[in-house]
């Protein structure tokens, strides 16, 4: 049985759990884990005040309970696998550098913010600022992959510098705001206006998108690299169709107020 932390009852105010990741707990004894510091609002507390600890340490960690008010789950993790059984709070997977974090429910805002590597999988939906930047920072996510099986909120991939964000459902407004590079794939609709102030990078949409007038149409074609990306996402369990993988995409370049080196690829009807 993997090391399992079970939340006894939902905290009344947000509980911050930075450091709860498999790589950091793998070598610790149970007493050390129970004594780890967590922040309940503005109060310092011990992990055992909120969680029951069971199982053995290793490369796998499981966290259970109503975790909607638990923040920073898996933040900074570098290796191993963390499974969150249910919903998770804000900043889940923030600053991740490796390993795999699977949330079996929804995640709050700022999930995967400033991520550098690894894979964050959200089986439900994600809030705003998915894969975005810490407040005040220019660059957001710098590497790794975020897969969301449900919807995602506004400003997905703000300041994205490198990495892949894929959302099976609908993506909210202002996706790819000020993005520097990297790739955002929205399978179920994309709010307006995507790619505002983007310098480089790719936003992929599978249906009509309202674009800023600072984007210019280039051509309609089948981007060779996109086949790799979409096949990769299908292998990871996202619902990609052959029409999407083999289809033609309209290429719009922008943002013209910046370098115009970015692109928004929009699937065209029919192959």
């Amino acid at each position: 049985m993997p090391l399992t932390l079970t939340l006894r009852e939902p905290p009344t105010v947000p509980l911050e759990t930075e450091g709860l990741s498999p790589d950091r707990l793998a070598t610790r004894r149970r007493g050390e884990i129970e004594a780890l510091t967590v922040w309940h609002g503005n109060r310092r507390a011990q992990l055992a005040d909120f969680f029951a600890v069971s199982g053995n340490g290793g490369e796998e960690l499981r966290v259970e309970g109503d975790l909607r008010r638990v923040k920073f789950l898996g933040a900074g993790m570098t290796d191993g696998r963390l499974t969150v059984a249910g919903d998770a709070g804000m900043h889940t997977g923030a600053d991740m550098r490796g390993g795999e974090l699977v949330v079996e429910g929804d995640v709050g805002d700022f999930a995967g913010v400033n991520m550098h590597g690894g894979r964050l999988v959200v089986e439900g939906s994600a809030g705003h600022q998915l894969g975005g930047a810490h407040p005040g920072e220019r660059a957001g996510m710098r590497g790794g992959e975020i897969l969301v099986h449900g919807d995602a909120g506004d400003q997905v991939g703000t300041g994205l510098r490198r990495g892949l964000i894929a959302v099976a459902g609908r993506v909210g407004d202002a996706a790819g705001l000020r993005m520097l590079a990297g790739t955002i794939v929205a399978l179920g609709g994309l709010g307006a206006p995507p790619g505002a102030a983007m310098r480089r990078g790719t936003i992929v949409a599978m249906s009509h998108v309202t674009l800023l007038p600072t984007f210019a149409f280039a051509c309609s074609y089948r981007p060779p690299f996109l086949r790799l990306y979409l096949r990769h996402l299908r292998a990871l369990g996202l619902p990609l169709t052959d029409d999407q993988i083999e289809g033609r995409y309209a290429r719009w370049c922008g943002d013209g107020l910046e370098l115009r080196r970015g692109e928004i690829l929009i699937l065209e009807a029919g192959r």
């Binding site: 590497g143 490198r162 990495g163 892949l164 790739t183 480089r200 790719t202 074609y221 089948r222 981007p223 060779p224 690299f225 790799l228 990306y229 990769h232 080196r261």
Partner: peptide, 22 residues
């Protein structure tokens, strides 16, 4: 040209008259 990094491998997209060479 533009690059893409997927699953630890970097690919180069080279624009050509026919479209793009990957």
């Amino acid at each position: 040209q533009a690059s893409k990094l997927l699953d630890g491998r970097r690919y180069w997209r080279v624009p050509v008259m026919e479209g793009e060479f990957l």
